[in-house]
C-alpha cells in the first residue's frame, strides 16, 4: 500500500482510518510527513478514511523531469484516487497543495465533495499579493544563506533561481548546504531542482480566476492570522459561492507546523459539518 503506480509514476501513499474519504495534499518542497508531525492524519483518521501522498518530485514519489503545473499535479491526484477506488473525497491542501485541490475540483467537480484551502497563493491571482512582503520567503532566504546559497534581493522568492543556484554550488558550498539540510534532504532538493517544478509552479496551468470563482463545492479558506496572502483569503470568501473564511492564530504561512492544534481543530470542525444528516443526529 505505501507504494502505488498511478498516471505512469510511482507514488508514496499513506492511508489510515475509516469513514468518508479525506485526502491531504502537502505544499512544494514538502512531503507527507508534515501530516504526521502535525498529527493531522491521526486526528482526522478518528472520523474519516484519510489518504496522504507525496507529490511527484517530492518525498518518496517519482520525480519526472517535467510536468509540475497544478494541472499535472491534479491529474496525478485524480489518478491516485482512481487506483484507491475513491469515487469522491474531501480535499485538504496546504499552500500549492490547495492550488492542486482547487484545480482537481475544476477538472472533476463530481469527485470533490469539499475543499480546505490552507494558505494558498494562486498564480492567476498574483496581482492581489505583494510577494516581497512574504515572511515565509524572507525566512527561506535566511535559511538558504545559512546553508551557503545567496539569493539576490530581486530573486530571493524565486524557486527556479534557488534551484539553479543549488545546482551550481562549488564543492565547499555544497558541503555546507549538505550539513544544513542533511544528505537525503540535499538529494531531494537536487532531484527537484533538476525538474521544471520551479518554473511550472509559477504558471497558472489553465486555472484561471474565472474558473476559481465558479467552484461551488463547500470551501474553507483557512489562513494564518499573519499570512502574507490575506488578500487572496478575502478574495476567495467574496468570490466563491460557498466559501467561508477562518484564521489560525499565531500562524503565518505554515499553520500546520506553526499551530497544529488550531489547524486540526478547524479542519475537523469543517469536515464534520459536512457529515450526512443522519450521522450528525447521532452525534448531537
Amino acid at each position: 500500500m505505501p507504494r502505488m503506480k498511478a498516471n505512469g509514476l510511482n507514488f508514496h501513499v499513506q492511508q489510515s482510518g475509516d469513514g468518508p474519504d479525506v485526502v491531504l495534499i502537502h505544499g512544494l518542497t514538502g512531503d507527507l510527513s508534515i501530516w504526521f508531525l502535525a498529527r493531522t492524519l491521526a486526528t482526522l483518521a478518528e472520523s474519516f478514511r484519510v489518504t496522504a501522498y507525496d507529490l511527484r518530485g517530492h518525498g518518496y514519489s517519482d520525480a519526472p523531469e517535467t510536468g509540475y503545473t497544478s494541472l499535472d499535479h491534479a491529474g496525478d491526484l485524480l489518478a491516485v484516487l482512481d487506483e484507491l477506488d475513491v469515487r469522491k473525497a474531501r480535499l485538504v491542501g496546504h499552500s500549492f497543495g490547495a492550488v492542486i485541490a482547487m484545480h482537481a475540483a475544476v477538472l472533476a467537480p463530481e469527485r470533490v465533495e469539499a475543499l480546505v484551502l490552507s494558505d494558498p497563493y494562486f498564480p492567476s491571482l498574483r496581482h492581489l499579493e505583494d510577494l516581497s512582503r512574504w515572511g515565509h520567503w524572507q525566512n527561506f532566504r535566511k535559511e538558504a544563506e545559512d546553508a551557503g546559497v545567496s539569493l539576490s534581493a530581486d530573486t530571493w522568492y524565486d524557486l527556479t533561481n534557488f534551484f539553479d543556484q543549488v545546482l551550481h554550488l562549488d564543492d565547499q558550498k555544497l558541503l555546507a548546504f549538505r550539513q544544513a539540510v542533511g544528505l537525503p534532504g540535499l538529494n531531494r532538493v537536487l532531484r527537484l531542482a533538476k525538474t521544471t517544478c520551479g518554473r511550472d509552479s509559477k504558471l497558472d496551468g489553465g486555472l484561471s480566476a474565472e474558473m476559481i470563482d465558479e467552484v461551488s463545492v463547500p470551501c474553507l479558506a483557512l489562513y494564518g492570522e499573519y499570512s502574507p496572502f490575506l488578500s487572496t483569503a478575502d478574495y476567495l470568501v467574496q468570490h466563491l459561492p460557498r466559501c467561508e473564511g477562518r484564521r489560525i492564530p499565531d500562524a503565518q504561512h505554515r499553520a500546520p507546523e506553526e499551530n497544529p492544534r488550531a489547524f486540526n481543530a478547524e479542519v475537523l470542525a469543517f469536515l464534520e459539518s459536512l457529515q450526512p444528516a443522519e450521522r450528525q443526529k447521532v452525534r448531537s
Binding site: 505505501p2 508514496h12 499513506q14 512531503d31 507527507l32 510527513s33 508534515i34 504526521f36 508531525l37 507525496d54 518525498g59 518518496y60 549538505r178 542533511g182 544528505l183 537525503p184 534532504g185 531531494r188
Partner: peptide
C-alpha cells in the same frame, strides 16, 4: 542526516 519523511518510511 535523515528527514522526517525518512522517519515515516
Amino acid at each position: 542526516g535523515l528527514a522526517s519523511i525518512d522517519a515515516v518510511v
